[in-house]
Deep mutational scan, measured.
Amino acid sequence: HDTTVHINGLRIEVHGASEEILKWIEEAARRGVEAEEIKRWVEEALK
């Protein structure tokens, strides 16, 4: 999927993410993980 995830006011563009990654992002956000940190993880995961 190409999608934009909104976390604590930060937009994260996610290209080619699976449902699993999207669920993981939402879970991390709920746990209060910094949005910048999530963004870094997602970029690494999608390389």
Rank of each mutant, 00 (worst) to 15 (best):
H1A: 13
H1D: 13
H1C: 08
H1K: 13
H1M: 12
H1Q: 14
D2F: 14
D2V: 15
D2N: 15
D2R: 15
D2G: 15
D2P: 15
D2C: 14
T3A: 10
T3S: 10
T3P: 10
T3R: 12
T3M: 13
T4R: 05
T4Q: 11
T4D: 09
T4C: 11
T4A: 15
T4M: 03
T4Y: 01
V5Q: 02
V5F: 01
V5L: 08
V5M: 06
V5E: 04
V5G: 04
H6M: 09
H6Q: 11
H6W: 01
H6K: 10
H6L: 09
H6G: 04
I7A: 03
I7L: 04
I7S: 01
I7K: 01
I7G: 05
I7F: 01
N8D: 15
N8I: 03
N8M: 00
N8R: 02
N8E: 15
N8Q: 07
G9Y: 00
G9L: 01
G9H: 06
G9I: 01
L10T: 15
L10I: 15
L10D: 12
L10H: 13
L10M: 12
L10K: 07
L10C: 10
L10Y: 01
R11Y: 15
R11L: 15
R11P: 15
R11C: 15
R11I: 15
R11G: 15
R11K: 15
R11T: 15
R11F: 14
I12W: 05
I12V: 08
I12G: 01
I12T: 02
I12Y: 03
I12E: 02
I12M: 02
I12D: 02
I12F: 04
I12Q: 02
E13G: 07
E13R: 07
E13V: 14
E13H: 09
E13Q: 10
E13I: 13
E13C: 15
E13A: 08
E13F: 03
E13N: 14
V14P: 01
V14L: 13
V14Q: 02
V14D: 03
V14S: 02
V14C: 04
V14Y: 04
V14K: 00
H15V: 13
H15I: 13
H15D: 11
H15A: 14
H15K: 14
G16A: 07
G16M: 07
G16H: 07
G16T: 05
G16C: 06
A17L: 10
A17Y: 04
A17C: 04
A17K: 03
A17Q: 04
A17E: 03
A17F: 07
A17V: 11
S18T: 14
S18V: 08
S18H: 06
S18W: 06
S18I: 07
E19C: 07
E19V: 13
E19M: 12
E19N: 11
E20M: 09
E20Q: 10
E20Y: 08
E20D: 11
E20G: 08
I21E: 02
I21C: 08
I21K: 01
I21H: 03
I21G: 01
I21A: 02
I21T: 04
I21Q: 05
L22S: 01
L22A: 02
L22E: 02
L22D: 02
L22H: 04
L22W: 06
L22C: 05
L22M: 13
L22T: 02
L22Q: 03
L22F: 08
L22G: 02
K23P: 00
K23S: 10
K23R: 14
K23L: 12
K23M: 12
K23V: 08
K23E: 12
K23D: 09
K23F: 07
W24S: 03
W24K: 07
W24C: 09
W24L: 07
W24M: 09
W24Y: 11
W24V: 05
W24P: 00
W24H: 06
W24D: 01
W24F: 10
I25H: 00
I25Q: 00
I25M: 07
I25S: 00
E26G: 03
E26K: 07
E26Q: 09
E26H: 06
E26V: 08
E26D: 11
E27F: 01
E27H: 06
E27T: 06
E27P: 00
E27W: 02
E27G: 04
E27V: 06
E27Q: 11
E27Y: 02
E27M: 04
A28P: 00
A28F: 07
A28I: 05
A28K: 02
A29C: 09
A29K: 10
A29I: 15
A29V: 15
A29T: 10
R30C: 07
R30P: 04
R30K: 15
R31P: 01
R31Y: 05
R31H: 10
R31C: 09
R31W: 05
R31G: 09
G32L: 05
G32Y: 05
G32K: 03
G32R: 02
G32I: 02
G32W: 03
G32H: 04
V33I: 12
V33G: 02
V33M: 12
V33E: 06
V33K: 04
E34F: 09
E34A: 13
E34D: 14
E34G: 12
E34T: 15
A35P: 13
A35I: 14
A35S: 07
A35W: 14
A35H: 08
E36M: 09
E36K: 08
E36V: 10
E36P: 07
E36R: 09
E36W: 05
E37A: 11
E37N: 07
E37Q: 12
I38A: 01
I38M: 05
I38Q: 01
I38R: 00
I38W: 01
I38P: 00
I38D: 00
K39S: 06
K39N: 06
K39F: 10
R40A: 10
R40M: 07
R40I: 08
R40S: 08
W41E: 03
W41C: 10
W41R: 09
W41H: 12
W41A: 09
W41L: 10
W41S: 05
W41T: 08
W41G: 03
V42M: 03
V42W: 04
V42C: 02
V42L: 10
V42Y: 05
V42F: 06
V42G: 00
E43L: 03
E43D: 13
E43P: 00
E43F: 02
E44L: 09
E44S: 12
E44C: 10
E44G: 10
E44P: 00
E44R: 08
A45W: 14
A45D: 02
A45Y: 13
A45T: 12
A45V: 11
A45H: 11
L46Q: 06
L46I: 12
L46Y: 05
L46M: 11
L46D: 02
L46A: 05
K47A: 13
K47D: 09
K47N: 13
K47I: 11
K47V: 11
K47H: 11
